Computed example of a mutant assay.
Amino acid sequence: MRPRKEPSKAVGTDRDFVVALGRGLEILRAFRKEGEALGNRDFATRTGLSKSTISRLTYTLHRLGYLSYNPDTARYRLATPVLSLGYACLAGMPTLQLAKPYMQELANYSGMPVALAGRDRLTMLYLERCRGSNPVTLAIEVGAHIKLATTAIGRAYLAGISDDLRTEILEEIRSHEGESWPAIERGINEALECHARHGYCLSIGEWKTDVNSVAVPFIPTDGSPVMAFNCGGAAPHLSRDWIVSDIADRLKDLVRQVSAISP
Rank of each mutant, 00 (worst) to 15 (best):
A117Y: 00
G92E: 13
E141W: 03
L106W: 02
P101R: 03
R56P: 00
D42P: 00
E171A: 14
M112W: 03
T123C: 10
T80P: 03
I173D: 00
Y59Q: 13
Y109N: 03
L127K: 04
L64Q: 15
P71M: 13
R166T: 06
T95Y: 03
A37M: 07
P71V: 12
R119W: 03
M124D: 03
L57N: 11
L90Q: 08
V82A: 07
G154A: 08
L83Q: 09
A107C: 01
Y87F: 12
N134H: 14
G111K: 02
L38W: 09
T60D: 10
S84L: 12
P113F: 01
G143P: 01
T53C: 08
Y102W: 11
T123M: 08
V82L: 11
G111Q: 07
Y76C: 10
L64D: 11
R75W: 02
L122G: 07
T150P: 06
G118A: 08
A139H: 09
I140H: 06
Y59D: 14
A44I: 02
T73L: 13
A88R: 15
Y69C: 02
S84M: 11
C89S: 08
E171Y: 13
L170D: 06
K100P: 00
R129V: 12
A117V: 03
H145S: 10
I54D: 00
R75Q: 15
L148F: 01
E128V: 00
L116F: 04
S68E: 11
A149G: 08
Q97C: 00
G86K: 06
L125M: 11
G160E: 04
D163M: 09
E172N: 06
M124R: 01
L138V: 13
R155F: 02
A144P: 02
L49K: 10
A152Y: 04
A159C: 13
R63C: 12
S133E: 13
Q97R: 10
R77F: 06
I173L: 15
L127A: 01
L85R: 05
N134Y: 11
P113E: 08
A139M: 14
M93K: 00
I54H: 04
T45C: 02
L64P: 06
G154P: 14
S133H: 08
R119P: 01
T45A: 14
C130D: 04
D163A: 15
G154Q: 05
Y59T: 14
F43A: 05
T47K: 09
Q97I: 01
I153G: 03
S68H: 04
A79P: 01
H145Y: 12
G48Y: 14
M124V: 13
